[in-house]
Each structure stands twice: as C-alpha cells, then as structure tokens.
Design a protein around this nucleic acid. Sequence first.
DNA 1: AGGTCGAAAATCCACAGGTG
DNA 2: CACCTGTGGATTTTCGACCT
Length: 489
Amino acid sequence: MGGFIPGLLNKAMTITQSTRMLIKPSDAVVWISCQRRAWLDKHQPTAYEPDAFNQLLSDRGLAHEAAILAKLENQFSVVQATSFEHTQALIQQGAQVIYQGRLVDENQGLVGYPDFLIRQESGQYQSADAKLSLSENKKAIQIQLGIYRRLLGNGLPAMVFLGDGRTALLGDEVELLVDEFITSMKALLDLEQQPSVRYSHSKCRICPYEAHCRPEFEMREDISLLYGVHGKAADALAEAGISTISQLAASTVDTVPDVPYLKGSKRKYRAILQAQSFLSGKVYSLDKTVLPEGTWIHFDIEDNPLTRSRERHVYLWGFLLPTYAKDDFDYVWTDGEANDYEGWLGFLQKVEAYRSLYPSIVLAHYSNHEKATIRKYAERYAMENHTTVLWLLGQDSPLFDMQNPVLNCLVLPLQGYGLKDICKHPDLVDFQWENQESGSQWSVVQFNRFLSETNPREKQKLKNEILGYNRDDVVATRHLELWLRNLFC
DNA sequence: AGGTCGAAAATCCACAGGTG
DNA sequence: CACCTGTGGATTTTCGACCT
C-alpha cells in the first residue's frame, strides 16, 4: 500500500478515476469527526446507504442549491461544467458563472467541485457554495471553502450562500485551519495502518465503519466504551496503567489517579461502577431516587427543525394522563408552521386545563428539550410574563426532567442514557415501541413527508403514525416512572 | 440541520514585573 | 522605551451526551 503516485498512473486512467487519493473538501466533515474514519475513507472505503434523515437533509441541501442556481440564472448566464477540462475551457472563455465546476491541483493533492465559480470584473473567479447551515463559523464549511480558494489560487475570499438567505465571505482567516487539515490529511494518506482512536458513542453509533471498529474496542476492553468516559481520559488512564475495563472495574477511587475529564472521587466512582456494570450487566444504585409528588402527566413534544423560516416548529405537544392507558393520550397538533402560534396557545390551554383538573400536576418529560423549547416559545411570542409561562418556567415549575434521577442515582449497563436505550433494554424497563423503526429522527422524516403529501388519505395515515409514535414515547416515560418507583424509591 | 447542558480546556486580556 | 514573562480572571471553544 502507499500514497498515490501520479507518475505511475496508467495513461488511460482519467483524472476522475484517480481522485480518491486526493484531498477533497467533503473529506473535511469526516476528518473533523474522526481520524480513523478519514483514514478508512481513503484506504478501505465502504459503500453505505445514508439513513432517511440524512437523505432528507441531503435533499434539502440540493433544493437549496437549486434555488441559488435559479437566482444566479436570473442575473447571469450560467454554464454547467462537465469535466475538469471543460471547466478550464470555460474559465479561458470567461464564462460569467460556471455551475459545478471541477478543479484539481495534483501538486497540492487537492480536488474540488465548487457549486459556483463566479467571474469578477477583474476576470478572476470567485468560488461560491450553497450550504444549508445557518452559520459560516463552522470548521467543515471553512475548510471546504478554503480548499476552493487554494484551487483557484487568486486570493479572493470564497462565498457561501447560507440556509437562512445570508451570504458570507471566507478569506485568509481560514488559512490556518486549512493548513492543519491538509497537513493532517496528507499524513493520513501516507499512513500504512489505520490510526488508533477511542470510542465515542455519539460519533461511532452513526459511523458506517462501526462494525469495523467495534470488535477491536471490545476485544481490548477499551475504557472509552464506558458511558461518560472521554477519549482523553482513557488515554491518560492508560498512561497510568489502567487500560482495560476489567482493570478499572477492579480499581478503587484511591487507586485511580485524577486525569483530565475524570477528576474527583465522585466522577471516578461512577466510572468504576460503570465498568463493573459493563462487565456484569448489573444496575447500581448510587442514591435513592426522589420523585416529585402530584398527579403525573407524561409530556413529550415533536418538532420540525427543517422549516422554511428555519425556526423550529413544534407540531405535536403530546400528553399521557391518568390512568395512563393508551386511550389516555391527549395532544395538540398543528398541520404546519403557519399554525405555530395556535399550537403554542393550544399547549398553554391544555396545561391550564390539567392544572384546574388536578390539585397539583407534574409534567414529566425526558431530557431538557421540552423545557428549553417552552422557553424558546415564550421568547418567540414575547410571553415571558404570561401567567402560565411564569408558572411553567418559574420556581414551582411542574416540569420534571426524568433524566435527572436516572443520571444522578443510577449506573446502568448501557453506553447511552437516552430514553430509548433505557426503555428498550430487556433487563431494564423493557418497553418496546410499536413502530420498530421509530426514533426522533424518524419522526422528523415522517412529518416532512406529511407536509409534502397531497393525497389526504396518505396524509392522515402519516399523521396517525406520528401520533402513535409520540404516544409510545409518553407511555415509555410512564413505564420508566413505574420502573423507578418499584426498584429505587 | 438545529439546539441545550456541564465540565474542562483553550484563548484572550489587563496588569505587574523584569531586562536590555 | 520596547519587549518578554507570568498571573489571575473572564470569555470562548470543545467535547460528549441528550433532544427533534
């Protein structure tokens, strides 16, 4: 194996066929998330299907690009490039805007396809990309646009058409980052063996190479497999002689040194228990869980992050009331962002109705998302001083985040403490969703299908599925509540 | 794609003190 | 006076883990 050597290229091989070992802007996204993944992409690429949610994002990105293209076509004459050579020819001819131009620089080892190349009055070309993102201050974007600048080599800042309609310029300020990226990518290209990395649950579980890496982590009993243990902490522990889960499980708070991201006896104690739990599958209780008194109402919202305005729209505010059977599911639904305000008012009304029905209520939800969203809505509609809002967000808030007692009191044989992780586990809550494929990203996809569906029957069907999913979510938190009460209170 | 949270690291900045 | 160094404190960034 080894790096790509231009000189040894078969003459019949076109540039397009040999670009794998060149650095391309889209490598930046992977490079930021994981060095190993970046290496594998270059040396042992795997074809994989993006999930429905990423497909949705990708479709939106293409639609955004098409919208920008249409705009530019109104202003300029736009020509689509079909190859590297064609792009060069168009540049020579001085085409006003080149769409999907293809640039390559084998000396720098770079290749890139900027969405647009826009001719300036000086005759120089400026690269421009359409990005769904709302901010230009993202490493991946800065690197990508920075690569286009290098490929053009004229010093002009690159332009980005952002998802909210803003345009931004990226100039010399991104150079340092681009340097770091290129240097690191070149080193990865030359590397004979995959670099060693640590496990990160949030990154690895969505990685196409998970099946490749995971057995290795497990065989090594890599400590970073444990929930809450940072990769850097694992590195430092290994240096101190603790490099397997078994070793950590056999340690005590006093024999584990303080390391970055794992300091203090409390955190170290948790990590040790997490290691023991990983090996034994047992649940450890740190503290008695204390649950608030009152009439519990389970609460879960669904929202659409991909609205036209790009402000999140909560289209479903779901509740599970006593006696917590499936029929006790209640909700406020809105068909689209045009009814955003109605949905919010409907939610406030519902909550007030529950409050008058029961002497004291607890609105139980999982993780802080519900509370944060209520805060956002209060701000959006300037209702911070509304009596219901004051009550919801004030001192005696009925909102109760069930993740808190779980995180504070329990150590579970899991790598994630999300609602689904805990509820689906057969040895824990053991509650199964009726819709197997459901998940938070699934609901976003379904709602966007609902929005674009024109057949009323199909539309109703999609809505029912989403309602069923949301109902299962609140039923799940109810099951979690009972599980906590039975075992830990 | 967006966001929140908390811990910890990284960066920045004003200011003090020393040196040639 | 220009320049370097150290320090404490405030601010910003990063990380991993959640949510839609």
